[in-house]
């Protein structure tokens, strides 16, 4: 079983929901990313989503856009992100790490090289925002060959036929985008999520994580009740942005602990 499978199986046994925090690699600095990942795990994260910064993050709101800009200014690259995962794995052999980002940095490296490197350094899943199933043949083939899970997005606009298409390709878990909008948007609609999840469950047997617009303990709890895992990105990145290099690890740890407590009430 993969790290992602083991993690979700254990959570299911414990009747708990996954907490999946997101940070952008290289934000606020390259030196702080690995300590932040460890702090996330210590605070109760089950799966880590590590953002690969891109110059043109079309699906992201201003908070993660700024994080990407900061990271790129510090010289962050896909190569560097993979090295960070290797560094993280020296001390943590069990927490799944999913790389999340846009396709072009991977295209530039080549899918085969990328997938091989992922396996070498201990990446578990890859989510490429702008590569829908239609354009994921190459990606899928190479990731599968190296045992890396392709994580796919589903959206409020996704119909039954497409849900079935994703169900065939997806591994690990699926990521349901809770709203029509960009990351960090402020118009979360719990009723709409509650209606959509059963439609997804009809075709998807993998765990379903929900993200976009979850900004505090209350929304994390409400969403956790509806699915298998809660993804929190912009809110954590905002905490990073508002902290100093000295207190960022402590501040992020404190925030994620609050989210953990909330999710465990679901």
């Amino acid at each position: 079983m993969s790290r992602i499978q083991v993690t979700f199986a254990k959570l299911k046994q414990q009747r708990r929901k996954a907490l999946i925090p997101f940070i952008t690699a290289g934000d606020p600095s390259q030196q702080l990313t690995v300590p932040l990942l460890h702090a996330l795990v210590e605070a109760g994260a089950d799966v880590l989503e590590l953002g690969v910064p891109f110059s043109d993050p079309m699906a992201d709101g201003p908070t993660i856009q700024r994080a990407s800009e900061r990271a790129l200014k510090h010289g962050m690259s896909l190569r560097g992100v993979l090295e960070m995962v290797a560094e993280f794995r020296k001390q943590d052999a069990t927490t799944p790490v999913v790389l999340m980002g846009y396709g072009n940095p991977i295209e530039a490296m080549g899918w085969e090289t990328f997938a091989r490197r992922c396996a070498e350094v201990g990446v578990d899943g890859v989510l490429t925002v702008d590569f829908p199933p239609e354009e994921s043949h190459d990606a899928f083939e190479h990731l599968q060959a190296h045992g890396i899970d392709p994580i796919f997005l589903l959206a409020p606009t996704t119909n039954d036929a497409r849900i079935q298409q994703v169900a065939k390709l997806a591994r690990g878990y699926v990521y349901y985008v809770s709203l029509k909008g960009v990351t960090g948007a402020g118009h979360l609609d719990l009723d709409a999520i509650a209606q959509k999840i059963p439609q997804l469950r009809k075709h998807i047997s993998l765990p379903i994580g929900v993200g976009f617009g979850i900004r505090d303990a209350a929304t994390a709890l409400a969403v956790a009740k509806l699915c298998d895992g809660v993804v929190v990105g912009s809110r954590i990145v905002q905490e990073i942005e508002n902290s100093t290099e000295q207190n960022v690890v402590a501040n992020v740890g404190k925030l994620v602990k609050e989210l953990r407590l909330a999710v465990d009430q679901a």
Binding site: A59, V129, P132, E134, P156, R162
Partner: peptide, 12 residues
């Protein structure tokens, strides 16, 4: 060419 877009916009 192709359709390299986030899922939300693919149906559109």
């Amino acid at each position: 060419g192709g359709t390299y877009m986030a899922e939300t916009l693919i149906p559109a």
